[in-house]
Design a protein around this nucleic acid. Sequence first.
DNA 1: ATCAAATTCAAACGAGTGTTTGAATCATAT
DNA 2: ATATGATTCAAACACTCGTTTGAATTTGAT
Lengths: 236, 236
Amino acid sequence: MSQAATPLPPVDAKSSDDTRERILDAAEHLFTENGFEGTSMRMITGAAGVNLAAVNYHFGSKEQLIQEVFRRRLTWLNQERLRILDELETEAAGKPIKPSLIVDAFFGTLIRMAEHEELGGRTFLRLIGRTMTEPSGFIRAFFAEEYAAVVDRYKQALFKALPDVPKAEIVWRFHFMLGATSYAIAGTDALRIVTDWGIEPQEAEEGLDKLLPRLMTFLLGGLRAQLPQFVEPPSK
Amino acid sequence: MSQAATPLPPVDAKSSDDTRERILDAAEHLFTENGFEGTSMRMITGAAGVNLAAVNYHFGSKEQLIQEVFRRRLTWLNQERLRILDELETEAAGKPIKPSLIVDAFFGTLIRMAEHEELGGRTFLRLIGRTMTEPSGFIRAFFAEEYAAVVDRYKQALFKALPDVPKAEIVWRFHFMLGATSYAIAGTDALRIVTDWGIEPQEAEEGLDKLLPRLMTFLLGGLRAQLPQFVEPPSK
DNA sequence: ATCAAATTCAAACGAGTGTTTGAATCATAT
DNA sequence: ATATGATTCAAACACTCGTTTGAATTTGAT
């Protein structure tokens, strides 16, 4: 129980950072493949080539390990999202921002993480896609805290960008966009089984390059769609 | 090990159907709240008020129980989807069907299940939304088998309905639509935490009545969006 | 009433879980 | 070289997991 309370190594990188990183990398991969409950500490430490007790020593518990796996990526992602939105708002100088720019800043920034292996690459992208529907209470709470500020800023930007669309409608469509995106990245192989595509597999392979423009046009098409007409239920 | 091999009670309803149904209902709710690995047999049998061994006796294993939880709903759902598509194709008499009708037949039929408690209601809807991103291998395989025929028929219908859209594009957009839908139904409360809405909660409550038209316009907006222009990467 | 099958039950099984312990090893600064 | 703290390690802890067992009970047909 020596120093497990220390949140992060203070400044310089000790050799034990190795162990931490190896554990985080192994956990990221295994969580993606097997889920949180389907991944045991022994699987993680085995894949990382470290002792079983290392996780509890460095992170405290499995729960805290899960949080750290996300935090090391999400902190960067959401700061980047805020930075870009700041930039856009500065350029716009008070005027509304084009919806396509807002959507790209939020979802494009996420998708583009897949190209950078040092940011977790496709593995982390799949993991986060799956985790959005995670039932576990503490994960939902953690995500809520990690996302609250960003989502709120983007919501406000969309309200301003689409003044003719009711706010409730925008929130719902934001919700839908999140779903389409999560699914697209989580299920690159999950649903390939289901759909079997019926198109040349070569065309499915190069998916990630073309995924972003494809997703983008879909999201924007949905975001800018005509407003729904609520039909009153027949009689009642 | 008396008769555990019997797939289903032959014809008439015995009193033990009670036990089966109680288990399935309890499992459906608990899986929705806690996930598959987060729900133990003891939780299920406890909630159902039956003996611990009852699950293994009636279903063989936890894995088979999970499959049965889905099968009793999905069989109806996908038959209904096929039936409606048959109807639409008969009416169309060889001509393409309007995309909105196809989309409503597939996704609307799912959403409308929520209104019928005897079909599982909102609980099953949330469960299926979450399960689409499930990592577990046997669940993916099971879903693939259960969905293959339906998805293929609907894909063909969409190809015909949108002759100007490349097939690969349609498959992707079908994928996106699945994601938006799954998310919308799975996360009715999951993301409410994240977004906190910023709109009158009363307006969020009546969500399910208006969810379908809202989702519908979003999906159709995305499905019919302009085609993406693939920009070649800068230099390379 | 009798018999055979279906179902329920309490108890236990072996395996796997996350976590803890205390000694051994390593690194670093004096 | 020595002392101090950080880290690693093998072993064990208490617990939960899904499943199995074999006897008790219930059910339904004769």
